[in-house]
Every structure is written in C-alpha cells, then in structure tokens.
Design a protein around this nucleic acid. Structure first.
Length: 527
DNA sequence: CCCCCCCC
C-alpha cells in the first residue's frame, strides 16, 4: 500500500475504510495531493463498497470520504465549494453571500403559470465560488434570509453544469435549490473573505471569446465626469467611464454605473488603483470595452498583491510608458466618439437614406469651411446661453438669453455664457458635407473656447475672428460624430443631421488604426 | 425550471 503514506492527514479515514473491508480494490480511490480528495466514482450514489446507498444518511457513520460533514478528515468541516461537481450528491457547504440578484418571476415554459427565482454568489474559506439559484418555495423562504455579506451553511441542492451564457461565476457548476433545500444562517466566519478577485491582466482579454466577464486590477489612468441619461427603454441611468491601465501595457475603457459612478470626481483623481470583479467585456466600435456589472465589486486601492504590483509599475515608469489602448480607436482622454465609423461619402448616403430610428455615424475628416455669411448676411458664431442649473440633472439650462441676460425659460435674469453654434463643412478624400455643429463639438473643431471666440470678436472685430476661424481649415484631422434623426418640418418628413461631438485624433492611435486597416487589406489581397 | 446584467 505504497500510496498510504501520501494520505497523511486524511489517511486515517481510508485506513478505517480498509480495516472495515469496505474498499473495493477495483475502486481505486486515487487521492490525495495533500489538500483535496479526488475520486472518479460518485460517492453515495455508488456506495455498495461503503455501507449501501440507503444507509448513507446525515449523521450516519457512513465513511464517505466526499462527505466531510461530521468527520474529522480535515480541519474544515464543510465541503469545499471548489470541489462541487455532479459526482457529489451529498455535501454541505459553508459560504458567504457575496452578491444577490433581485427576485424575479417568469412564465413557466411548460405552460404551468408563474415561477420565481433569484440567485446569489457564494464564497467559502478556501476561496471557491459558485452561483446558487433558488426557485419558487425556496425563493420565498430564503430571499430575505440570504443577505449579502452573511454566512450560511447550505445543503440538499442540485449541482448542474453552469450555463456560461448567463453565469459568469468562476465555477464549472452551479447550484439549484428547491423546496427540499437546507439553508441556515451561521455566525460570521472570518476565514471567508467578503470578496474574491480573480484578477487577469488586461492584455489577456484580447485573446478571449467575447463577450466575457473578468476581474481586473488597474490604474485609473483617466476618468470622465459622471453622466446621467435615460436609456432607450426609459431607465434613468448614471454612468462614468474610466480608462484603466495595467502593467501588461494595455489600457481599456470600463464604464461604471449608478452609485459607483456618482462618487465624487476627487475619488478618481490621482491615478488610484482599482480592483473590479465582474467586468463584462465586449466589442464596441471595433475596440474592446468593459462595463462593471451591478453584481460585481469595485475596490479602491485594495490591499492585494495585484494592486501593489500595478501601483509600483505605475510609479516606476509605467505612467510614462506608451500603452496599447484596446477600446475604440478614437481620441484619447475626454469624450469619445460613438457611431459606426465610415467615410464621408458613406455617411452622407446613409443619413439621406435614414427611415426609422436615429443613427450615429463617425468619420475621420478635416474642417474645410465655416459658414460666416448667408446671402451676405453675417452669421452669428455663438449665442449667450443661460447657466441656470436645470431641475433634476443639474445641467445648465442653455437656452438663449436676451441682451439683458433674461432667460424666458427660467423667467428671470440669469448668468450666461457664450455657446458656439456653427455650420461647418467637413471633408475627407471621398467628399464633404455641411452640418450644424453644436458647442462642445465646435470648441474641439476650432481648438478655441466659445469665450475666446466671443472675446476676439468683441475686442478685435469680426474680420479678425473670421481670419482666426479660417486658420483652422484643414488644420487637423478630426473624428466627428454625426447624428441623423428623422424629423418633421411643416408636416414634411426629413432628416435632421447634426454634429454633437468631435475630437482631434490622437496621431499615434490613428496611425495604429490605419496600419491595422492596411494589414487587413493586405490579408484580403490575393498573394 | 430563469437568463435581465444597462449607454453611447
């Protein structure tokens, strides 16, 4: 029995089994690595060589090596979550609830009315994690009980293969609890962490099948302001986009939501390290971008090896290193451009053919003209906009005020500031188009603030400001965003096209983008 | 047995 010496801690149990003559030689219990029991056959379901399936009950003296409860086989009295599989039918795990989804109802597929379900994620002292779903009666019974952060023992659930389409938890299996389940709240177990990050390098997400869910740890290289908006299906959302970077030389955008996004800007200032659990990575605009899911976690400057590693990388030169930005290949820092990338000609055609919903396009092009006159009449370049914060989102009212700074919407005299409103012509090798270019885009296009434009016009005159604008023609490559919106004008159907945002390109990134295009073209070419 | 995981 040469393998006996390897059994050590757990060995006494096998010896007991052998002493009782219950181990069938052909069963080859091939364990152990000093930590875990490994055996290929099912435990109690195939227990003839134990004491017979019917006698294998709770508190029975059945020497089932895979049912740790009530034995002294290891220091742990519970079955390791990591080891759960369909080969084990009897187990009791002890874990902390690390996340919990809301209770949902659904229509039973086989017609018989409503069902309900919720799920949690459980973490145990050995760092194993698994998702558990509770159905119907079990859902009613345990929804309130299973609070995030609390510890429980759980048994009498079914183990099934995790459905990777919906389950991002890092376990091959998931648990399903029904009426028969046994769930008990227990005292907090300090050996069980509150969250477990299984960090991967940003570089590694490039090779993954997308969409995927990962845990990451990186430096907040950049952050946007939080942004409140209403989604297409009417949900009020708040988001903030961060650019994370790590020592694998990659940077990527990750969007955070809700309260996480609403934290003060100062929290994101100074390049803190963040660890994120449950970042969903998908392709967006030809690049990869992440979104931190609600059930995930976010930790600032966490005390973990990956965080210390990435921090020292950043301070010891990483901040100056040139990184590969794997999100959309537009601008760098600040607002990014959304919309399908195409050339100017295609953009023109698409916007003319628009029928139903609003569409966004973007193109690399240059400013070729600004409309300064219309039938000899001088066109205003800006207007004075009301700065009064709007109710709800706190953004400025932005309505035009009169010469006395009276805002008709707010019905009072207000503070005001100039906002650009230009009619611009943009051009690339395929064509050009005229478009109303709103303030934020116009400021980027000119590389001047509205205040500067207004000041020059007032102090130096119209001619000087016009010359200044003309000096911007063809000056830089921009990525402009075009919004085409179906509209009704005097009962006539027409498309309203505007430019809500624009950004000078980052030459380095743009060069990479063009190289990639060339490579793709070469790959397609006949050799 | 469910299955949404958000936005441009």
């Amino acid at each position: 029995m040469s393998h006996i010496s390897a059994l050590l801690v757990k060995g006494h149990l096998l010896l007991q089994l052998q002493a009782k003559g219950t181990v069938h030689p052909a069963m080859s219990i091939d364990f152990c690595d000093g930590q875990r029991w490994r055996r290929k056959s099912a435990c109690c379901a195939n227990a003839t060589w134990l004491k017979g399936p019917k006698s294998c009950k709770e508190d029975d003296s059945c020497f089932c090596p895979l049912r740790l409860k009530g034995t002294s086989m290891t220091g742990a009295d519970f079955f390791p979550i990591r080891e759960l599989s369909t080969y084990q039918t009897k187990w009791t795990i002890k874990g902390r609830v690390t996340s919990k989804a809301p209770l949902r109802t659904f229509k039973q597929r086989n017609g018989s009315g409503q069902g309900k379900v919720f799920h949690v994620e459980l973490l145990d002292a050995e760092g194993g994690e698994i998702r558990a779903s509770f159905f119907n009666d079990a859902a009613d019974k345990h929804f309130e009980l299973l609070e995030v952060g609390k510890c429980f023992t759980l048994s009498k659930g079914q183990v099934k293969l995790a459905n990777r389409q919906y389950n991002a938890c890092k376990h091959r299996y998931e648990l399903v609890f029904d009426k028969a389940c046994q769930v008990d709240g227990v005292a907090d177990d300090g050996k069980i962490d509150t969250v477990k990050f299984s960090v991967v390098e940003l570089r590694s997400v490039k090779g993954k099948t997308l969409p995927c869910s990962v845990d990451v740890c990186g430096i907040v290289k950049d952050y946007d302001k939080s942004f409140a908006f209403t989604s297409k299906d009417g949900k009020d959302l708040v988001k903030r986009t961060l650019t994370l970077a790590d020592d694998s030389g990659i940077s990527m955008q990750v969007t955070i939501w809700g309260d996480r996004a609403k934290k003060e800007d100062s929290e994101f200032e100074g390049n803190p390290v963040v660890a994120m659990k449950g970042v969903s990575v998908k392709v967006w605009q030809g690049g990869l971008s992440g979104s931190l899911m609600e059930g995930g976690s976010l930790a600032f400057n966490p005390d973990m090896p990956e965080a210390h590693k990435v921090k020292s990388w950043w301070t010891q030169g990483g901040h100056a290193q040139s990184l590969t930005f794997i999100s959309q290949t537009s601008g760098g820092g600040g607002a990014r451009i959304a919309g399908k990338l195409m050339d100017v000609l295609e953009m023109k055609q698409k916007s003319e053919q628009l029928v139903n919903e609003q569409e966004m396009y973007s193109a690399y092009c240059r400013l070729s003209s600004v409309q300064l006159r219309k039938r000899d009449e001088i066109q205003p370049l800006y207007y004075n906009a009301c700065l009064e914060p709007k109710e709800g989102n706190g953004l400025p009212c932005n309505r035009r005020v009169d010469e006395a700074n009276f805002c008709a919407v707010c019905n009072k005299t207000v503070k005001a500031a100039p906002r650009l409103n230009l009619r611009c012509r943009f051009e690339d090798a395929t064509g050009n188009f005229w478009v109303t270019t709103f303030h934020p885009a116009a400021e980027k296009v000119l590389g001047m603030t509205a205040q500067e434009v207004a000041d020059i016009e007032k102090s130096e005159g119209r001619e000087v400001v016009e010359a200044k604008l003309k000096s911007c023609y063809y000056a830089q490559i921009l990525q402009v965003q075009l919004r085409a919106k179906p509209d009704n004008y005097n009962g006539e159907q027409r498309t309203n096209v505007s430019c809500p945002s624009a950004q000078p390109i980052n030459r380095r990134e743009h060069a990479r983008f063009m190289l990639k295009e060339i490579e793709e073209m070469l790959a397609k070419a006949v050799c």
